[in-house]
Design a protein around this nucleic acid. Sequence first.
DNA 1: CTGCGGGTTGAGACACAGTCTCGTCACGGG
DNA 2: CCCGTGACGAGACTGTGTCTCAACCCGCAG
Lengths: 150, 150
Amino acid sequence: MGDPTAILVALERAGFRRTAPRRALADLITAQDGHFTAADLVAAAGAERLGVGRATVFRTLEALEQLGLVERIDLPSGEHAYVACERSHHHHVVCSRCGRTSEIDDAGLKAVVHQIARRTGYRVDEHRLELFGLCPACLAEQPGPASVPA
Amino acid sequence: MGDPTAILVALERAGFRRTAPRRALADLITAQDGHFTAADLVAAAGAERLGVGRATVFRTLEALEQLGLVERIDLPSGEHAYVACERSHHHHVVCSRCGRTSEIDDAGLKAVVHQIARRTGYRVDEHRLELFGLCPACLAEQPGPASVPA
DNA sequence: CTGCGGGTTGAGACACAGTCTCGTCACGGG
DNA sequence: CCCGTGACGAGACTGTGTCTCAACCCGCAG
């Protein structure tokens, strides 16, 4: 998923220093191909003997999340995972087999949210939509028997 | 939210025994008025000296979730909470002030999911939509300054 | 009513995620 | 080059959820 430098530049622009651990984490994150957990990063950093502590991983992820460079998603299993992504508001489809994700824009959701707000009387400030299924590649590899969507 | 007996009956029908701890938990859950966490139940059970162990709370919640009598939602804070609810597929709006929830049906979401599936090529098997905001009661009590939705 | 079998239980150990503290370090402006 | 301050790693700490295990009790059969 592109260039680790983008992350560092964005961090720098937000007033964060450009340090060795953050550089290492930027590399690891851009190398990830689907979603990843904080534990994944900690393990990866440990495996490559980068000497990056747990605390730093969490701190960096928190900063990146606030900058919108990374989004936290909640897997069906209850785990918290992260996805590197664009800065605009959007949602994700997560492949439950290979873990890859695709970003999707509004796709008509705004109207749905609006309607719900009107029906329930709530003022909706925030929403989260997460989709899980099989990506095209995994679908091709594994010609599922009954491909009846939910 | 109604009758604790409904929970017990549903459990019994699914082959679970009707035991004192489960009765106590059914009472506690139906007494809850918004969402609640596992820790809430553990604390409540402890406070009333019901002698219900942590393990039993988690086991019961797991069973209820599988039966669809309770749904697990992920709060923006990252906490896992539960909501007592109907058995059909649906979604929730959660009041971020008082914690109360309302159930909502499809509301046009199916079309959105369909469109996303077509655009991305994914086969979408599962989806989760969660909305957060202020319920009518909290809106009235607290005449928010700028009520501009997201 | 009584006895029995197996599902159920509570306590506590355990595994893990995430937070916090603190002394040290190094980035980068001056 | 120097200094102030943000960032660092290690590890203690908190909280959540899981697992084990011996004792228990629910519900059925007799």
